[in-house]
Amino acid sequence: MSQTTIKTSGLTRSYGDICALKPIDLSVPEGEWLSVMGHSGSGKSTLMNLVGGLDRPSAGSLHVGGQDLSSLSEDGLARFRREYVGIIFQQHHLVPYLSALENVMLSQYFHSVPDEAEARHALERVGLGHRLQNRPGELSGGEQQRVCIARAIINSPKLLLGDEPTGNLDHKSTLMVMELLKELRAEERFTVVMVTHNEEVAAWGDRTIYLADGVLVREERTRP
């Protein structure tokens, strides 16, 4: 954990008169698992979107993987997302008319070249080797989330973002997904930023920061 993956200074995001994220200074070392907690509207998703290059800051500096995201063009940000970031959404957001395998390959297609064997392997790693040709509508919530994880890691991202990835899952599926993420992180050594409002899920991280009304109010280290 020597290098810094995320470095923000005075990072702010406003929507008109509403300040969703007040100036925030944050540093996330390479390989760290950072949990972001807060109530609804606290600014945690805003922070994740900025870090993932899905949104642009209103003020302050934002460096991820050594790149100043504020200076990147639209296509530059797109390139950053496909080459550096993997995202797991709460609502999975899988393409409904593609199979599990094709959903994973779609991510490869945007990154470089689709490789069916590699995509198949990624799904096998998340325990879905037997559900390759099933479409999202034919999968359970937990299975869909595992497809989402396979899609997020297929391009070996340096940064994995999770936006309430277990928010729609039952307790058993949540544990399964978190175990899976832990294993993958141990193998891939990516940095994790996980937004959650679940203390139990947050506890899987190395460090947790707490946001309230767009302000970083507290942080605590959950692991040494």
Binding site: L54, A78, F80, R82, E83, H93, F110, R151
Partner: peptide, 16 residues
């Protein structure tokens, strides 16, 4: 639009 948004979130650029 959700499908397009997803593609863009995954890094699809305007050309793709």
């Amino acid at each position: 639009s959700p499908e397009i948004a997803l593609m863009k979130a995954m890094g699809a650029d305007r050309f793709q």
